[in-house]
């Protein structure tokens, strides 16, 4: 039986017919909407490559049954930049060389956006590393990733102050 899934994805409301209830949110984003920035890594909630924001909170979209999130607002990596203007976290990952192959990067960036919004890590590198532990990087760009999150936190604090 086809069921209609309503999602607001990066600000655009969509009705998505779902005829196979097994679809995860990750599958819907990549296969149905064509937003392939969100990556399928382990597909078991262990690597974080599929991280997206649901109603502002970071989750593993590979373990999110799409039908269960009917009505949700989703933000993917494609929804961060405003035109050519990168999100401060995206800019910081480039500045701090926070990646090598890039496959985990969209998940890292979405996780970092949420981490900064959660406001619990601040500028403590140990809390940043702990808060980012759900995102694996097999190129091991961790030093750059930590620096990128700290840079972005400082940049966003300045924006808030301005």
């Amino acid at each position: 039986m086809t069921q209609i899934l309503k999602l607001t994805i990066n600000g655009t409301s969509q009705d998505i017919p779902i005829d196979d209830p097994r679809a995860t949110l990750l599958d819907v984003l990549r296969e149905r909407i064509g937003l392939t920035g969100t990556k399928k890594g382990c597909d078991r909630g262990q690597c974080g490559a599929c991280t997206v924001l649901i109603d502002g909170r970071r989750i593993n979209s590979c373990l999110a049954l799409a039908l269960s999130y009917d009505g949700a607002e989703i933000t993917t990596v494609e929804g961060l930049a405003q035109g050519d203007l990168l999100h401060p976290v995206q800019a910081a990952f480039i500045e701090a060389d926070g990646f090598q192959c890039g496959y985990c990067t969209p998940g890292q960036i979405m996780s970092a956006v949420a981490l900064i919004a959660e406001g619990e890590a601040g500028l403590d590198p140990e809390r940043v590393r702990e808060g980012m532990s759900g995102n694996l990087c097999r190129c091991a760009a961790y030093a750059g990733i930590t620096e990128a999150v700290l840079k972005a936190t400082r940049a966003m604090n300045r924006e808030d102050a301005a």
Partner: peptide, 9 residues
Amino acid sequence: GASAQLRNA
């Protein structure tokens, strides 16, 4: 336990 993403779900 787990990760921030998993704890949110």
